[in-house]
């Protein structure tokens, strides 16, 4: 099994720790991981901004970088969703088709490819899980409240099994945080307000550590936490599963 690691551009630049934790976690789980050095980005930021035609070069570069692998694993549901869903505008060569199939979000990979249901770590903290929309509704990694009242999903399944952990019961379990790519600057007012409301829900219900599957949402939420000096530590799910402590 040839597994490649894809570290999205903003994670590479601003969240070195998340990249390191993802790599270490996979290694601990017995996966031999290759990190192709020429990788950059999946092209989502431009495409969501209305310029998918301009991203074709980025898409092709991505495919060229990753097509030799059986699996491409990334700590981002959003990039995974983008590659699966929106790489339909370039010619569907076997390489493109392969990459679109082999791209996996980290937790999905752990549960559904490695078939690992439990990671024997302890994390004795009150944890609030932010469900990022692209992982949740795009990849169906978690139930959507529009469809069912049962709150469950891949990330919460793994989290719940950590020793000593307590999960926050939120008022709005799957409301968007308001990051939304370019949205966070073009619609600054609404974006910030959405983020503030998410943080308020976590604060009201006792979250001490806020986690999630997408660094982009967490970066936005962390920006608000820091501005408000709120007593919340933000960690990506890879860091928690890797055994890092807040």
């Amino acid at each position: 099994m040839k597994v490649a690691l894809f570290i999205p551009c903003y994670v590479d630049q601003f969240y070195t720790n998340v990249g390191v934790s993802t790599l270490q976690l996979l290694e601990k789980l017995g996966v031999e991981v290759v990190f192709p050095m020429k990788q950059t980005c999946c092209g989502q930021p431009m495409a969501n901004g209305g310029c998918e035609q301009d991203s074709k070069g980025v898409y092709e570069h991505f495919v060229e970088t990753f097509s030799e692998f059986d699996y491409v694993v990334t700590p981002s549901g959003s990039c995974t969703y983008h590659i699966k869903k929106h790489y339909d505008i370039i010619e569907q060569t076997p390489a493109v088709q392969k990459v679109r199939k082999s791209i996996y979000e980290l937790v999905d990979f752990i549960e559904n490819v490695l078939k690992i249901e439990e990671i024997p770590n302890s994390f004795p903290h009150k944890v609030g899980l932010h469900l990022s929309c692209h992982g949740q509704r795009g990849l169906r990694q978690a139930n959507a409240s529009e469809i069912t009242g049962v709150r469950d999903g891949q990330i919460s399944k793994l989290l719940r099994k950590l020793n000593g952990i307590e999960l926050t019961e939120l008022e709005r379990n799957d409301e968007c945080c308001g990051f939304g790519g370019m949205f966070c600057v073009t619609e600054e007012a609404v974006s910030a307000r959405m983020g503030q409301d998410r943080i308020a829900d976590h604060l009201r219900n006792g979250t001490k550590v806020l986690t999630g599957g997408d660094v982009s949402c967490l970066m936005h939420l962390e920006g608000i936490v820091k501005r408000q000096n709120a007593p919340i530590k933000v960690m990506h799910i890879a860091e928690i599963l890797n055994g890092n402590q807040p």
């Binding site: 570290i7 994670v11 590479d12 630049q13 601003f14 969240y15 070195t16 720790n17 998340v18 990249g19 390191v20 790599l23 990190f35 050095m37 966070c184 600057v185 600054e188 910030a192 983020g195 503030q196 970066m219 936005h220 962390e222 920006g223 608000i224 820091k226 501005r227």
Partner: peptide, 21 residues
């Protein structure tokens, strides 16, 4: 506009790529 209501992330010294190398 990001900074009206949010802090920017701390910029680490090393990128992941640099760490990996």
């Amino acid at each position: 506009p990001w900074a009206k209501a949010r802090e920017l992330p701390d910029a680490p010294k090393q990128s992941f790529k640099e760490w990996y190398e």
